[in-house]
Computed example of a mutant assay.
Amino acid sequence: MGYRPDMTDNEDQKKLVDLMSDMPIAMLTTYGVDGPRSLPMARQEVEPSAEMWFISARDTAHTRAIQHNPTVSLTFSARDSWVAVTGTATVVDDAAKLEELWNTFAEAWLPGGPEDPNATLIRVDVEHGEYWDTPGSKVASLISFAKTKLTGATFDADHGSVDL
């Protein structure tokens, strides 16, 4: 396994999107005047076009950081796979899109609903992404880990990188 240079950008992009479909929570890192800051955010959509949406409160440190410096990093993880992406974030006021994406999870943070004047959206246009995947069961991952300890080889993980 390991890094597969024979994969096309389209295959890597599809794999990246497929992995993220089971990873609804990201750690969003902003780079504002106070330096890097990370917080968990629930991803509302991930599109093959590399556009992601998040519902947020407007008056927060992370929305101010995005307005200062729109560069962001997002990391996602699951038991056997990890995704890291970088891109440009924008705070978006779009009532129709907010209504479309609204869910009960958002309501827990913004009880005023999508009409709450403090509710807004963050759109991230992904520019680069990487993934690491250890396909198979937990047993397969343990076998690969044991192999690394015994042979000194590296851990078998499917790795891909794509510029979007």
Rank of each mutant, 00 (worst) to 15 (best):
I66D: 01
A57E: 10
V162Y: 06
P135G: 10
D9P: 12
E45T: 14
N118K: 14
L39K: 11
Y31K: 07
G113F: 09
K149L: 15
R123V: 13
A106N: 11
D80F: 07
F155Y: 15
V126Q: 07
A84Y: 05
L164Y: 15
L150M: 15
G2M: 02
E11A: 06
R43A: 14
A57G: 10
F54S: 00
P114E: 06
V126M: 11
N10V: 09
T86P: 00
P24L: 03
A146N: 14
T120A: 09
K147P: 10
M20Y: 09
A106Q: 02
S141M: 14
G32D: 10
E11I: 10
P40M: 06
D158S: 10
K147L: 09
S21Q: 12
M52N: 00
M1A: 13
S73T: 06
S56Y: 02
S144D: 15
T71H: 10
N69H: 03
D6L: 08
D125T: 14
T104S: 13
D156S: 07
R4Q: 13
R58F: 05
E11W: 02
P70K: 01
I25F: 12
G152I: 06
T148G: 04
E115L: 07
D34P: 04
D18L: 00
H159D: 04
A95S: 14
K97W: 06
W82K: 02
S144K: 12
E47T: 12
D94P: 00
V92F: 04
D59H: 13
S77C: 03
P48E: 04
G87T: 03
G32P: 05
M7R: 10
T8P: 09
A84C: 12
V91E: 02
A89T: 09
Y3P: 13
A153P: 08
T29S: 11
P24R: 03
A50V: 00
D93I: 09
D34F: 15
S56G: 02
N103Y: 03
D6A: 06
W109T: 12
P111Y: 13
T63G: 07
V72M: 06
F155I: 05
E130M: 02
D163R: 14
D158E: 13
V83L: 10
K15S: 05
H62Q: 11
L121N: 07
D12N: 15
T151R: 08
T63A: 06
A108K: 15
M52F: 05
H62K: 11
V85S: 00
G136F: 05
S56M: 04
N69F: 02
F105E: 04
M27P: 08
D163I: 02
V46M: 08
T90V: 09
S77F: 03
D158N: 11
L101K: 10
W53T: 00
D133G: 00
S73W: 03
V17D: 01
T90S: 15
T60K: 01
P48I: 04
I25V: 15
D34L: 14
W109V: 13
H159N: 07
V124W: 09
G112D: 11
S161I: 13
